[in-house]
Simulated assay, not measured.
Amino acid sequence: MSTLVAVLTIGLIARLTRLCVADQLTYGIRARIVVRLGPDHPLSYLTTCSWCLSVWIGAAVSCAAYFWADTRWWFMVALAGTASLITGWAANWLDPAPESEDA
């Protein structure tokens, strides 16, 4: 695996972790897990903890990279995920949310 593909794979892991733990798109799934199992259940905690879930996502994505990192489609998937991550960071940095006037 080249260094570029390894870095892109790490970016993909970070983006998938963010998607699962914090994005609005997956909020409903996380909320159903917490409501059904309760907030103290380990799976509820896992779905809301970036540090915890990234280990499992990292393991799965790393295994996939082991087998497919030398393919063009893996490069494109990893590039897309990393580009999404960097674009999100840039958007938040360049256009921060306006502060509340009540603060």
Results as ranks from 00 to 15, higher is better:
A64H: 04
P39V: 01
G28D: 07
Q24R: 15
T82D: 14
A6K: 09
D102N: 11
L53N: 10
A31M: 11
R30P: 01
R32D: 04
S44D: 08
S54I: 03
W73Q: 11
N92W: 05
V77L: 11
E101F: 02
C52N: 04
S54V: 05
L79Q: 11
S50D: 03
A14Y: 08
S2Q: 08
L46K: 05
W89F: 05
I57P: 00
G38S: 02
L19S: 06
D23M: 09
I86Q: 11
A69F: 15
T3G: 12
A80F: 00
D70G: 06
C63G: 15
T9S: 06
G58P: 02
A14L: 12
E99D: 04
I13A: 04
G88V: 11
R72T: 08
S50L: 07
A83D: 03
T87V: 10
T47R: 01
D40G: 05
R72C: 07
W89G: 12
V21F: 02
A59F: 09
V55Q: 09
L79F: 04
W73A: 15
A83H: 01
A6T: 14
L53W: 00
F75P: 06
S62P: 12
A65W: 02
R30I: 10
T26Y: 12
W89H: 11
T9R: 07
V61D: 02
A103V: 10
A90F: 13
A59N: 07
D70L: 05
R72E: 03
I10E: 10
L79K: 07
S44M: 06
A80Y: 03
G28M: 01
L79S: 12
G28L: 06
A103E: 11
H41T: 09
C63A: 14
G11A: 02
S44Q: 01
V55N: 04
S50G: 09
W73F: 09
L19A: 12
V5T: 12
L25Y: 13
I13P: 07
I33T: 10
L53M: 06
C52Q: 10
A14F: 04
A83Y: 00
D40T: 01
T47S: 03
L53Y: 00
G38T: 01
A90K: 14
A80S: 14
P96L: 03
